[in-house]
Design a protein around this nucleic acid. Sequence first.
DNA 1: ACTAATAAGACCTTATTTGTCATATTATTA
DNA 2: TAATAATATGACAAATAAGGTCTTATTAGT
Lengths: 143, 143
Amino acid sequence: MILSRGAGYAVRAMIDIATVANGGVAITREVATRQDIPQVFLTKIVQRLAKGGLLEAHRGAYGGVRLARPAADINLRQIVETIEGPVLLNDCLIQPGKCPRESTCPIYDVWLEAEEKLLETLENCSLAYLAERSKELCSKHSG
Amino acid sequence: MILSRGAGYAVRAMIDIATVANGGVAITREVATRQDIPQVFLTKIVQRLAKGGLLEAHRGAYGGVRLARPAADINLRQIVETIEGPVLLNDCLIQPGKCPRESTCPIYDVWLEAEEKLLETLENCSLAYLAERSKELCSKHSG
DNA sequence: ACTAATAAGACCTTATTTGTCATATTATTA
DNA sequence: TAATAATATGACAAATAAGGTCTTATTAGT
């Protein structure tokens, strides 16, 4: 499995916040209930998303979390990397020159290309698109 | 990190066998030394590659391992998946219908597309290409 | 029989993931 | 100021996986 469960939770939570709260404030506990995510674990994930600049958190009564910027300016790669750290296909991609075999290694370029393709796909997918699609699918399903 | 160290070792070992043994028999211990891979660990990896049909192993004196088929018929995806099992971006891709949210889930298709792009890149890279490139790089480096 | 190789499986250690729990902090309202 | 409702933080625990070792078979050639 490439992505951790936490990253999956993060994506679902972000979509939930974008969709249900619609730009306003959402309460982590309610997101957890709606999305069927372990509640306390989700608070941890939300903290990381907030530290990563994707969410704004407000404590106290009538607090909660909201998107830190418009959903159109958030993409899937950002969400995933905020939780998982940089997505790297292989050790040798951590930093150029780190691997002693690099100058004679025939696979370096292949790993790099595969990684780029993957990240590109995630980057091209905005939270706005996901939220829109979520609404579509939901209305189609219920109606 | 997406790929395990074991998968990286496997790829390097396969290239080594294709390059050095050149279709003939290679000895696991020597591959380990040349490629700087923990020896006993490599025997485990080689066993999995043999079970997966990528290598043929022969016991006894003058035994060893060799490619089970021409290097042109082996690709990077096969090597990686033989060691890691199916490469899956997310839980929900294990089997259609497994996830209860699937009918209203906006990300399923995106995970699927990203995964396909990644695997396609690995599939397009044959062991023959890697071995060829390894020889090139090595002669360029030493000459 | 001896030797050189892989096969197999038990085992261990360490790191990471996935969580839980208790407590602190902050902000609002009464 | 007290009560309440929310997040923040850090310690902890359990489950899982990764990385690696060790021992004992098994097989084949000489």
